[in-house]
Amino acid sequence: MQFRLSELGFEYRTSFSPARCALSGISFDIQEGEMVAIVGASGSGKTTLIQHLNGLLEPSSGSIAFGPGKVEAKDLFRKVGLAFQFPENQLFEKNVFEDVAYGPRNLRLPEEDVAEAVRRALSRVGLSEDLWRRSPFQLSEGEKRRAAIAGILAMQPEVLVMDEPTSGLDRDGSDRIEAILRDFNESGGTVVFVSHDMDLVGRLGRRILLLSSGRLLFDGTREAFFSRTALLRQSGLETPSCMRFMTSLKMKGLPVNDQVFSVEEAKRELMRVFRGEVQAET
């Protein structure tokens, strides 16, 4: 088990604003190697929730436990890498390599190990060696975001938590971030991400958590989630756009399965229906 949340609640309290109850009665487990998408309206508590996952926030009530084995709160930042929206805004060093090295250096690793961790993280996010000595500010938007993710990967976390991983990026940039998350997950890492982009949630998420006004409204598989049309409507969410297209074909009487979560899957389903071709699942 990676995380266990029991009746977790959180209230924002400041001296000049009324207390706002951001989360209440949140209970769920996340196992190692899961790929979890957290969805819900703006203000439903998604960002507040993920800030609990690496100990940035402590629950006002209930508890959160980290496993396997008991992890001290002060070590959490090592195990759980958290990227905020636009993590590239936090790039600051004189070059990309140094920026990525900042985290592992803070862990007081020997300099050779730091260099090795940095090289591995940078190649993992696909930033070629000619960019390593450039200022982070000379990179394109997509490259900057990948450099910021490399900074997290260089700490060798077990869990990667990202808030809106692809927002503001173009097609190529977001495809690459998607590939990084998938690769991290396929090599055994746990991924938790927050997104409003249902196309992304459909392509990447295996399990979906839906928050509404600080409560957990749904917890289940992607397939189950996107077939709950009433719940989606009530939450102001929609199915992925490829699924909407297939649903509209189905409404026109075509015998297609509309449970598809990517354009590629939709194309395979169309080939199956129109050509009778059953292609190997990838």
Partner: peptide, 9 residues
């Protein structure tokens, strides 16, 4: 880009 579908609408 940071909004949920309902706020987008």
């Amino acid at each position: 880009s940071l909004l949920d579908p309902e706020t987008k609408a």
